[in-house]
Amino acid sequence: MSFLNHLINGISLGSVYAIIALGYTMVYGIAKMLNFAHGDVIMVGAYVCFFASSSFGLPPILGVILAMVVCTVLGVVIERLAYKPLRQATSLAVLITAIGMSYFLQNAAQLLWTSNPKIFPTFFSFGGQTGVSLFDGGLNISYAALVTIIVCIVIMVALTLFTSKTKMGKAMRACSEDKAAAQLMGINVNTTISMTFAIGSCLAAVAGVLLCSAYPTLQPTTGSMPGIKAFTAAVFGGIGSIPGALVGGLLLGIIEILAKAYISTQLSDAIVFAVLIIVLLVKPAGLLGKMIREKV
């Protein structure tokens, strides 16, 4: 029974990783860059939601929506100011800029909100309970975990429909495959890249709220470790692939929680990354990634 508890916690944590990984993987797919500031957008989202509910007394749902709006704008602005001028630059220059942007956001947060941890409010409690207890307390599932898993499923279904059924979604796939050909179709590549950043950052806000609901300590560095883990998840599943982000995120979350429970709390991160290395040795493009073949 305790295994089942751990498994559910793992799936829940993995769902958060998956939602964050989507932002990495979609941006990588289209702009061919690793947006290392993505993890810090999560942190900003969590702060916005925190202040909306604790300082302004807004209901949680409004706090979440506000966080989504702020992060969407933030993501688009970051792309315009920091990455767009480097569209023709080497990938190394873009990478360093992304790392710089990550530090900038963390330090700005420290300046604005200090580095004292904030305790994130409990949003998911019904009738004084924060979860359900089954089998005489043998199985405890928190509402936060349930909501996280459901939200992750909804987001995955919505994104899959968006990229496979809508004109803009298909244009996004076309851009990620071949920018020149996409332009010849009449697709505005810059707009498409902005839209991808908007979607990824909006999801980052959702992930921030879900993450802090499960692990309620909020500080300026809150986003960095989950950001790196989610990046790992995206690589694990095959970077550029949306189903890959889901598979990678879930596996990473489950492995991490099970390693914590049964092997060692200290070693859990090391185990996660060891598994990543093994997967990449066997499948260099990740679990669901496609090897790019050059066609002559």
Binding site: R173, A174, E177, A181, K290, K295, V296
Partner: peptide, 9 residues
């Protein structure tokens, strides 16, 4: 040149 169709679509 080289057709540049969207291979994964």
């Amino acid at each position: 040149e080289g057709r540049q169709v969207f291979l994964q679509m």
